[in-house]
Design a protein around this nucleic acid. Structure first.
Length: 548
RNA sequence: GGCCUGUUAGUCAAGCGGCUAAGACGUCGCCCUCUCACGGCGAAGGCAUGGGUUCGAUUCCCGUACGGGUCACCA
């Protein structure tokens, strides 16, 4: 058959040449070892943890090596596309400090290797499609969905392997006349790859994460171009990553089974194969078994979940780092205050298998991340969250920034910082009592004490209010009050002979704590009185007195 | 079912032929302490399984079991 004629018949509109494309998108001039990587999501509007994991890995690898990261939108499936998805994606990733050097942006493309939206690249794909046809490496297939289904059923009955290959590939070796006839009838067609692979042959392949792999050759004549002329993922992957000069492809390991096909494709097109990093999936415990995190069943897969729960982006980022690079935690312990960027990320330290998503661990990481933040940072981050998810609380925070920062400074900054906040959602319960509208005596005064004693103690504290200069003298005052009303100023002394006292100084502080905060648990009381101020302290004692 | 891939404590994981098999989270106990949070100390708990190779296997090879993934004109 005259394949040149076939190619011209199939692709009459192709005017560009491969040489022109090669010249237009020359190899990049970057330093030695620079990684060019990319994120290539389909714009479904749903951004999930997997996207982030992949993005984070690509981002670190590229920027750390003096390379670059670009965003390519894989919008070849119009059925799944959602309006505004690209914007959502860019925003979500930016939220997690993943920024692109090049690619699709909210307003058009940035960079010289575009277009970066695949549907706009149709002409480019057709240049290579035509080339494959000319070289007898691809052919048109006119099978309908029903015919394909029929083939599948026969294969099932014969216990043959599924797929369009070998003798099942009914259009693989048709004459030009047969093809021309269908073309004239305007029968829809797809372009298929002519595979020369055999299941008998194994290929050795080295994945950057999984190491040496032994794969079976692909023998399926996969679809390259769909009937609308738009490429499938596989074909677009080969053409785009070649032309965009990608050096490292980071993707989920659900792609591993199609890797032999991709290897074939790159070779058929005469492209250099990039390096691959196949990341194991994020799993979840479901009853007694693990399973991949699923979009339908697991809300924690969506990035929006973490945002609304109030996990700071730094926490999620840091948690994913601990999962992705096994030595990250050790590094963090040794360098608690260094920016994450300084950690040397390595694909060698990535786990070849999928890991379980551990919510408890994420919480622990988050708690620590927040404890290391400055009060100012906590304030702005918390406010940011509250403005979206708790407007009332946001208003309180905004009404007096200095006040809020003072509150958030309690127990912060030392060697052993408090770790009360895991997510921003916790903040209100932790510090709400500082605001009158959120303050109420929620916990009751312990019942084993006489109300008279509690009243006397509170009254004494308010009437002879001591504006203590430091924690120690504040506590001395408390001891004085304890002693005055028959409570031991010393807990050990009390424990030695409980019958000699009504209680101890700790109980006294509990009374005051409940009066001031409404709760039995709170951060340092002295600090609280300082922030509240004398008037507010006395006011609250009086409120509590009334409730007794 | 075919193909691929994985398996170190409840979880995340160091480990690369010789170790009493790190560490972290979680759990439990104790200590510190005016509550809480923090911190300190300690405990329980593991190399899926059967064969090889080897003087010696968690580590290398083969099988078994059990997970996971994939077999579209979706990515």
């Amino acid at each position: 058959m005259d394949f040149k004629l076939l190619a011209d018949t199939l692709f009459p509109d192709v005017t560009m040449t491969e040489e022109e494309l090669e010249a237009k998108f020359p190899p990049r001039t970057l330093g030695e070892g620079a990684v060019v990587s990319r994120m290539a999501p389909s714009p479904t509007g749903f951004v999930h943890l997997g996207n982030l994991v992949q993005g984070l890995t690509s981002e670190r690898l590229s920027h750390q090596s003096g390379g670059l990261l670009f965003l390519r939108v894989e919008d070849t499936d119009s059925k799944r596309e959602v309006e505004g998805a690209v914007e959502i994606l860019i925003d979500s990733l930016k939220h997690y400090n993943i920024n692109f050097d090049e690619g699709a942006t909210k307003d058009g493309d940035l960079g010289a290797y575009g277009p970066y939206r695949q549907r706009q690249r149709k002409d480019i794909y057709h240049v290579y499609a035509k080339k494959l046809v000319e070289n007898n490496m691809a052919y048109p297939c006119f099978c309908t969905e029903e015919e394909l289904e029929g083939i599948r059923q026969k294969q099932e009955a014969e216990k043959a392997n599924f797929g369009y290959y070998g003798k099942w590939a009914v259009w693989r070796d048709r004459s030009f006349e047969d093809i021309k006839k269908q073309l004239d009838l305007k029968t829809p067609w797809v372009l298929r790859f002519r595979s020369c692979g055999s299941l008998e042959n194994k290929i050795k392949f080295t994945d950057q994460i999984k190491g040496q792999l032994l794969l079976t050759e692909n023998d399926i004549d996969h679809v390259l171009l769909k009937s609308d002329g738009i490429p499938t993922y596989h074909f677009a992957h080969a053409v785009d990553d070649h032309l965009m000069r990608t050096t490292h492809v980071v993707r989920g390991d659900e792609w591993l089974p199609s890797l032999p096909f991709h290897i074939q494709l790159f070779s058929a097109l005469g492209f250099k194969l990039p390096k691959y990093l196949h990341i194991g999936p994020l799993m979840k415990m479901d009853g007694n078994s693990k399973r991949k995190l699923s979009k339908r069943k697991d809300p924690e897969l969506a990035l929006t979940y973490y945002k609304s729960e109030g996990f700071p982006p730094e926490s999620v980022y840091e948690y994913l780092m601990t999962i992705l690079n096994s030595n990250f935690e050790d590094w963090r312990r040794a360098n608690p205050d260094l920016p994450t960027d300084e950690f040397k990320f390595s694909s060698k330290k990535m786990n070849p298998a999928g890991s379980l998503f551990d919510y408890a661990k994420l919480c622990d990481v988050s708690k620590n991340v927040i404890s290391r933040m400055s009060a100012e940072h906590v304030y702005s981050s918390l406010l940011n969250w509250a403005e979206e998810f708790d407007l009332d609380f946001a208003k309180k925070l905004m009404s007096d920034k200095e006040y809020a920062v003072k509150i958030l400074s309690i127990g912060r900054g030392g060697k052993k910082p408090r770790k009360d906040i895991t997510v921003w959602k916790d903040a209100k319960a932790y510090m709400g009592f500082f605001y009158d509208e959120y303050y109420s005596i929620a916990d009751t005064f312990p019942a084993q004490f006489e109300k008279e004693d509690i009243k006397n103690i509170l009254t004494e504290y308010a009437d002879n209010y001591f504006d203590a200069p430091d924690n120690e003298s504040w506590f001395e005052n408390l001891k004085r009050i304890a002693a005055k009303f028959g409570f031991s100023p010393d807990v050990k002394e009390y424990k030695a002979s409980p019958e000699s006292f009504k209680g101890h100084v700790g109980d006294v502080s509990t009374f005051i704590r409940i009066a001031l905060t409404g709760k039995t648990n709170s951060p340092d009381l002295f600090e609280i009185t300082r922030i509240l101020g004398k008037d507010k302290v006395i006011e609250r004692i009086n409120t509590a007195l009334k409730e007794l």
